[in-house]
């Protein structure tokens, strides 16, 4: 924090919000990848990044200032909220399932079209159509 004040930037609560910024940036990257890349695998990767952003978001919310990991122990008074962690475990499972299914589909798309580039698939369709 002193670093920022030294170089003359306002001391916005960076450590508190940093995670959220990371989440937002990841989300943007993920989104951009889905949007901009023709390659289907890259799209799935983008989707993964996008979901990872959500994981970060949830975990960040759970953080309690000065708290430790949510483990029961005699000397632990303050601990982070365990619920979001649990939720995110579920969400990760869902994410993996999605990725797996997406990749499986890509394998079959490649079998069917011989390519995994969206533009080429589209071209192949149009050729078949005419």
């Amino acid at each position: 924090m002193e670093f920022w004040t030294e170089i003359g930037l306002p001391a916005f609560a960076l450590p508190g919000l940093l995670n959220y910024w990371v989440a937002i940036i990841l989300m943007m990257i993920g989104f951009y990848t889905v949007m901009a890349h023709e390659n289907l695998i890259k799209k799935v990767i983008g989707l993964n990044i996008f979901q990872a952003a959500v994981f970060v978001l949830y975990i960040s919310m759970a953080k309690v200032d000065g708290g430790t990991a949510p483990i029961l122990g005699d000397d632990i008074e303050v601990y982070s909220n365990p619920l979001p962690h649990v939720l995110i475990l579920t969400a990760i499972v869902v994410g993996i399932a999605t990725t797996a299914l997406g990749l499986a589909l890509i394998v079959r798309i490649r079998d069917a079209y011989g390519t995994i580039e969206e533009e080429e698939i589209r071209a192949a369709e149009q050729e078949a159509g005419t």
Partner: peptide, 13 residues
Amino acid sequence: RNWETGSMVLAVT
């Protein structure tokens, strides 16, 4: 016509 995935995502954004 069939929308490309990319443009759909853009629309959503």
